[in-house]
């Protein structure tokens, strides 16, 4: 059997933009309001200080590196907006501070670790130095006093990587990239079986739609 992950082009759903359905029967008014509001968020901090925000941007570029062929998603801005609104996941370990405090302390600790190891701030490190530091955090190999009681691996798992990935996949550009149908109320779907695509779903490069994929995807409403 053919390995489905092999020989696939970088842009798996060329020409597909989930937003082309915005005014069609797959989007209800509430969804339009919610997504419009999210699209109005730019890469400007309201919760983070400027230097913290630059650090979030640098880390986000490593955790969720963005493809060149689609518009940039303001990941740091989306993380910042969630913290500004004060939203919570609803649970934490006893030694984890609440969301805002965890982020503030964690970013300060990353900066302290960068300066301790390299004498430079995180944003000034090479990419491999940055990745090395993130891997050490994931493995619990960082011990600067700036972490306080908060375990570095818990900050990585429950805040840093989690919040960045959730922000990235909250954005329509990310939905288009993976060929998801996106909002679907009230129209929903009709064709449910294997390789069964409704005409308002993205066609995949390399599928039986052949050379028509880009044309199909541009025509989706």
């Amino acid at each position: 059997m053919r390995d489905p992950t092999r020989h696939k082009p970088a842009d798996r759903y060329p020409g597909y933009d989930v937003l082309s359905k915005r005014n069609g029967p797959s989007w209800n008014d509430k969804t339009r309001r919610v997504v419009d509001q999210r699209l109005s968020i730019d890469d400007e901090p309201r919760f983070f200080a400027a230097d913290e925000f630059a650090l979030v941007q640098a880390v986000a570029a490593l955790i969720a590196p963005q493809p060149a062929h689609r518009p940039m998603i303001p990941v740091a801005g989306l993380v910042d907006a969630k913290l500004h609104r004060g939203e919570s996941d609803g649970f934490r370990a006893p030694n984890m501070p609440r969301e805002r405090d965890a982020w503030t302390r964690g970013l300060a600790a990353i900066e302290a670790e960068a300066r301790r190891a390299h004498g430079r701030g995180f944003c000034e490190l090479t990419k491999s130095e940055q990745i090395d530091l993130l891997e050490k955090m994931q493995n619990g190999e960082l011990h600067d006093a700036a972490w306080g009681e908060m375990p570095p691996q818990a900050f990585w798992k429950h805040r840093l990587s989690h919040d960045i990935v959730m922000a990235y996949y909250a954005h329509p550009t990310a939905w288009s990239e993976i060929g998801w149908g996106g909002p679907a109320s009230p129209r929903g779907y009709v064709r449910l079986d294997f390789n069964d695509r409704d005409s308002w779903e993205a066609a995949e490069a390399g599928s039986s739609d052949g050379d028509n994929v880009r044309r199909i995807n541009r025509g989706i409403r």
Binding site: K30, R38, G182
Partner: peptide, 10 residues
């Protein structure tokens, strides 16, 4: 019908 978006975050 009026309050629910097709959106995980919301």
């Amino acid at each position: 019908l009026e309050d629910f978006a097709s959106d995980e975050s919301e």
